[in-house]
Every structure is written in C-alpha cells, then in structure tokens.
C-alpha cells in the first residue's frame, strides 16, 4: 500500500534500530529493529510480557529506552526535552484504559491540549473538537463528563482527543482490551475509518479480524523480540515460526 501523505517529506515515519530496554535487570526489549513507513498500518501482537506495549510506549517516550536509536518523523528521540515535546505533538496515543480526564467534559478533554500546547484559539479548538467527535459518532455527548459514558464511548472520545492534536502518527495500546464485547466493534469501526484515510497507525491488539482488514504488516513479538513479520494474508495462512503458530492457535482457536 502506498501512503497518501508521503509528499510532506521523505523518510520513514518511525525508525527503530537495535532498541534495548531494561526494567531493573529484566530485559524487556532485545535489540528490536522496526521501520514504519508513512501511511503504513502495523498491527503488533504477542503474548503478555512480550514487550509490545513497551515498544510503542518508547516511540513517544512514555518509556525511556536504554540502548539503540528511535527516529520519529526524522527527529531522533534523546534526552532533548524539545525533541520529546515536538514528537509528542505529532504522535497521538490511545490507551487501554482510555485515560480521559475525569474532571473535564468530553469537549474540554478534546480542546485542552490543542489550546494549551498548540496555542489554538478557543473557537478553532472547539470547531476541531466537534468535528472529530462527529467523526467518532458521539457529537451529542460533548457536554457530558467521561464518567457518564460507556467504555466504548469513552474510548471513541479518547481517539477524538488524540486526533484533535492533528497528529501524523497514531499509537494504539490495546484499545479494546478493557471493553465489554458488545462495545469492541464500535471502536474498531472508528479505527478502520481512520486507517482508510491514510493515517500512519501502530496498533497493539489481539483483534485479528481488524489485523486482516487494515494491516499492511502484522508483527509477532515474544520475549522482547520481533519473532516474525509479514503481510496479514501470509501471516495468518503460513506463519513460519512455531511460537507464532502456537500463539495464533490460542487467539483464533475458540
């Protein structure tokens, strides 16, 4: 698949080279390398503790890596706070537990960061927020507080909130794992729409149906390493690795 916004500048969206990450003595990521092109959709799966969340959390520096290089949109992530803030403005993230700000309305959740980080005027921020709430199909909930919404609605607000910063890359960290089964599809539908519009997406998820539909590449991680990566048809039909096959049989087997 070719990316629709490759005209902006050349170079990959995210380039990870020989990434190492330790928690104390635990080696969470072992020399991981991954390149994500602009407009590409990546699905990362793997057993818990395999390092998949850690890896995408390194991309916007929620975790600090201990070795290797990460370059996001041409900027290398290092201790330079200016670089980190600049990258976070361009990289949106959606969390497993939504992490909406409970003391603000849905609209304020969406407007806060564009106003105080991007210094947008209030009217502009509100128009953007309402547009994205429309896009995730909950414009009528704008004045409610997060606690008054269902899990699926909260996650869609979280997606809208991230989009309001108009990021170039979106990270999804198990966005449907905390949801009741009947709410999963409403969130996935929004993500599919987003994918069809050419957003660069890196999703940690076990929703294999979603992977089949939108992923350009599916990545399987285990023990802090990327074990296998392939386009979805190939990945599901003919995984070469034993661990991948075992994992897939567990995820798809029931």
């Amino acid at each position: 698949m070719t990316s629709s916004n490759s005209s902006q500048s050349a170079g990959p969206a995210v380039q990870i080279e020989n990434l190492d990450k330790y928690y104390g003595t635990f080696h969470a990521l072992r020399k991981v390398s991954l390149t994500v092109q602009r407009g590409e959709k990546i699905v990362i799966c793997g057993p818990s503790g395999s390092g998949k969340s850690t890896m995408i959390r390194c991309i916007n520096r929620l975790e600090q890596h201990n070795g290797g290089r990460i370059t996001v949109l041409g900027t290398e992530l290092n201790d330079d706070v200016g670089n980190i803030d600049g990258i976070r403005r361009e990289v949106g993230m959606v969390f497993q537990h939504f992490n909406l700000f409970p003391h603000m309305t849905v609209l304020d959740n969406c407007m806060l960061s564009p106003m105080i980080v991007r210094k947008q005027p209030r009217a502009e921020a509100e128009a953007t927020a309402r547009r994205y709430l429309e896009k995730v199909r909950i414009p009528e909930q704008a004045m409610k507080f997060p606690g008054q919404l269902s899990g699926g609605q909260q996650q869609r607000v979280a997606i809208a909130r991230a989009l309001c910063m108009q990021p170039q890359i979106m990270l999804f960290d198990e966005p449907t794992s905390a949801l009741d089964p009947e709410m999963i599809s409403e969130v996935l539908d929004v993500m599919v729409t987003l994918a069809s519009e050419g957003m660069t997406m890196i999703c940690v998820t076990h929703e294999m149906g979603f992977a089949r539909r939108v992923a350009d590449r599916v990545i399987f991680m285990d023990g802090g390493e990327i074990v296998e990566q392939a386009p979805p048809e190939e990945f599901f039909a003919a995984s070469r690795n034993e661990r991948t096959r075992q994992f897939l049989s567990q995820v798809l087997g029931h």
């Binding site: 916007n60 520096r61 929620l62 803030d85 976070r88 969390f95 003391h103 979280a158 910063m165």
Partner: peptide, 27 residues
C-alpha cells in the same frame, strides 16, 4: 490519581507545569 492520567497528558504533548496544573492538581 491514576498514573494513566499523567501519561495521557504527556502523550498529548503537555509540559510538566501544564500536566501538574491542569491534570494532576485538580484531581
């Protein structure tokens, strides 16, 4: 205040003082 609150604020690009003033302290 759950750790996720500050992570969400960080992911949205807020500075330390913005995170403290807008997200952490009110809650």
């Amino acid at each position: 205040v759950p750790a996720g609150q500050e992570e969400a604020a960080m992911a949205l690009g807020m500075s330390y003082w913005q995170r403290i003033g807008r997200i952490l302290l009110p809650q």
